[in-house]
């Protein structure tokens, strides 16, 4: 555990020196900011005209756009985690240090996870401000559920990215493999769910988008939690196995 923390905190600090991390933070905050302000504006315009539409929610203006952004940001954040170590030769250092393979993989993932959580903490300003703009305040419980969904979703997708990073020596290969997997889980799996009714339960269950959106609406189902936690565990486990395979390949 201590080793996990050592690896994670080095990785976490590394992100603050990495241009990619700043670009990711910039894009997430920018997108959330734009959506928030423009949604607010259109609702305000309609309120002015005498309609009373539902005000923006944290789910609409922050959580969903951030999750969408993470489809591209997560591969960018994780692509170099282990492939970079391989390229620069430092992987040899870590693999001969008294450190278990899973500690290395989990530490790497945790570093990326902590970084993105830091960005998410900044996005909390939006729901806080929104709460003051809405009478009688936003649905705090649903907002908490939305952030929980976002956090679990991010954990799962970063774990997948970490797994690919430990499989590939090339960062870009890791990036695209991760991105393709995300696109499959986010969009493509939804199609067979509708096309092949017999397997719709199976494909529907794999559909990350469905799990995320239903949690975002405040209905936290056991299966949603299990789904995201399983994805995380599978990602980290596959990453560990990939490192082991690297040793004796």
């Amino acid at each position: 555990m201590r080793n996990v923390w050592t690896i994670a905190s080095r990785e976490y600090r590394h992100y603050f020196l990495s241009p990619v991390a700043y670009i990711v933070a910039f894009l997430i905050l920018m997108l959330a900011g734009i959506l928030f302000v423009f949604q607010l504006k259109s609702v305000q315009d309609m309120t002015y005209q005498g309609y009373y539409p539902n005000p923006p929610t944290a789910a609409n203006s922050v959580i969903y756009p951030t999750a969408f952004m993470m489809l591209f940001a997560a591969p960018a954040l994780t692509m170099r985690l282990l492939s970079e170590e391989q390229r620069s030769g430092t992987l040899e250092l870590l693999l001969t240090a008294p450190l278990k393979d899973w500690e290395l993989v989990v530490g790497k993932w945790l570093g990326a996870f902590m970084y993105i959580l830091t960005v998410y903490v900044i996005t909390l300003i939006i729901p806080i401000v929104l709460n003051r703009l809405v009478v009688p305040g936003i649905d705090i419980k649903a907002t908490v559920a939305g952030y929980l969904a976002l956090i679990l979703f991010t954990a799962a997708f970063l774990a997948i990215g970490t797994a690919f990073s430990s499989m590939f020596n090339n960062q870009f290969a890791a990036f695209f493999a991760t991105l393709i997997t995300f696109v499959l889980l986010w969009w493509v799996v939804g199609w067979p769910a509708n096309l092949i009714p017999a397997a719709s339960g199976f494909f529907g269950y794999l559909h990350a988008y469905a799990h995320l959106t239903s949690m975002m609406q405040g209905a936290i189902a056991l299966k949603d939690l299990v789904y995201f936690l399983s994805l995380t565990a599978v990602g980290l486990f596959v990453g560990t196995v990939a490192i082991e395979i690297r040793r004796w390949q």
């Binding site: 620069s88 030769g89 430092t90 992987l91 250092l93 001969t96």
Partner: peptide, 15 residues
């Protein structure tokens, strides 16, 4: 691994 000090061929450093 606890008892070995190892300097690999390509020096493993974080720039």
């Amino acid at each position: 691994r606890r008892r070995v000090g190892y300097l690999p061929e390509t020096v493993p450093l974080y720039p």
